[in-house]
């Protein structure tokens, strides 16, 4: 078997497993964890595009997530807009916010940009907390409708109130997100982003309009995060300003770093590992009666940065049986 066939078979097997999982799993709690994993995988993949590939340190990703969630929720509850349209609206408004947050990135980089992005998300969180007329403040928005059923025949339709059916929608969106990001990364666009990350002055010297590229990648990354937020709103049907919190961004960051920053599979792997791990931590927290999650996230981050800079994916590519075609010139087609 050529490496290419091996890879195709692996992809096919992976996709088959991906789509049969919701059928095999019957436990609703487990399905819920899978949904949260999927939402986080969209968030980590989109954050990774901006921070891992384009090198723009964004610590306000939760803002895009929150904007998507609130946009779709408010449109549905106040104006009765169809949640499916809300997904798109949430993504687009988040993209507009991404464009705006991209503007300071034209002059700032590294820690300065990071602080600006934290500030951006904090301002939005405070707006969500205090604009009670629109958002109901810290009580949160409730009564958000689920995704509208899709009619098949006159009396049969697909409902999205069950975790399983929702999971299918989510898997499709996740697949589209990862596919789009993968296509972009493997094209001249991705090479340009990486060039920009490695050396901005060098990139300018070969004709890269770095300002426009940064705005573009901020916008694209925010769009996907916004869609994830809107999906979450119609799944949970209750959202609070917590969706915009720094803790949310920190979870996205830890997952991506753990899985492998600047790789395609790393962010997804990190989302899977940490979503399940943090559910397990709930039991531990109940036992020790302490909120230890953030402490453990912090420790994981330190260990990852110190001992496995390229994350779990970086370790996997060192395994002899791992398909090497995934790692051409660096781990996982970096």
């Amino acid at each position: 078997m050529t490496p290419r066939t091996t890879r195709r078979l692996l992809t096919a097997a992976g996709l088959a497993a991906f789509f049969t999982l919701p059928l095999v799993v019957t436990d609703r709690y487990f399905l819920h964890i899978l949904v949260m994993t999927g939402i986080f995988a969209i968030l980590t993949s989109s954050w990774n595009l901006l921070t891992g590939y384009a090198g723009q340190l964004n610590l306000g990703h939760a803002a895009f997530y929150g904007i998507g969630a609130y946009t779709s929720a408010i449109l549905a509850t106040r104006l009765g807009i169809n949640p499916w349209a809300g997904l798109l609206a949430g993504g687009l408004l988040a993209a507009a916010a991404g464009f705006l947050l991209g503007i300071p990135s034209l002059r700032l980089s590294g820690p300065y940009l990071a602080i600006t992005t934290i500030g951006f998300a904090e301002i939005l969180r405070l707006v969500a907390m205090n604009w009670v007329d629109l958002t109901r403040g810290s009580l949160g928005l409730y009564g958000i409708p689920p995704l509208t059923p899709i009619p098949i025949t006159s009396n049969v339709s697909i409902e999205f109130t069950s975790e399983r059916n929702f999971l299918y929608v989510l898997l499709i969106v996740l697949l589209l997100t990862v596919w789009a990001i993968r296509r972009m990364i493997r094209s001249g666009f991705g090479v340009t982003l990486k060039a920009l990350r490695d050396d901005e002055v060098g990139a300018e010297s070969i004709g890269v309009d770095t300002a426009r590229f940064k705005l573009t990648v901020f916008t694209i990354s925010a769009f996907f995060a916004g869609v994830a937020g809107a999906l979450f709103a119609h799944y949970q049907r209750l959202i609070s300003p917590d969706t915009l919190s720094l803790g949310e961004t920190f979870a996205i960051l830890t997952m991506t770093m753990l899985g492998g920053l600047g790789t395609l599979t790393g962010p997804i792997l990190g989302a899977v590992i940490l979503t399940f791990f943090s559910e397990w931590l709930r039991f531990v927290e109940d036992m020790v009666k302490l909120d230890v999650r953030m402490v453990i996230y912090g420790l994981l981050l330190i260990v990852t940065i110190r001992f496995m800079r390229e994350g779990v994916v970086g370790l996997l590519v060192k395994l002899p049986w791992w398909p090497k075609t995934l790692g051409k010139g660096g781990s996982d087609g970096r």
């Binding site: 090479v191 990486k194 060039a195 050396d199 010139g329």
Partner: peptide
């Protein structure tokens, strides 16, 4: 000011 994490070809 080469792009150091890219391959020579990239």
């Amino acid at each position: 000011r080469i792009f150091k994490t890219l391959t020579v070809l990239e």
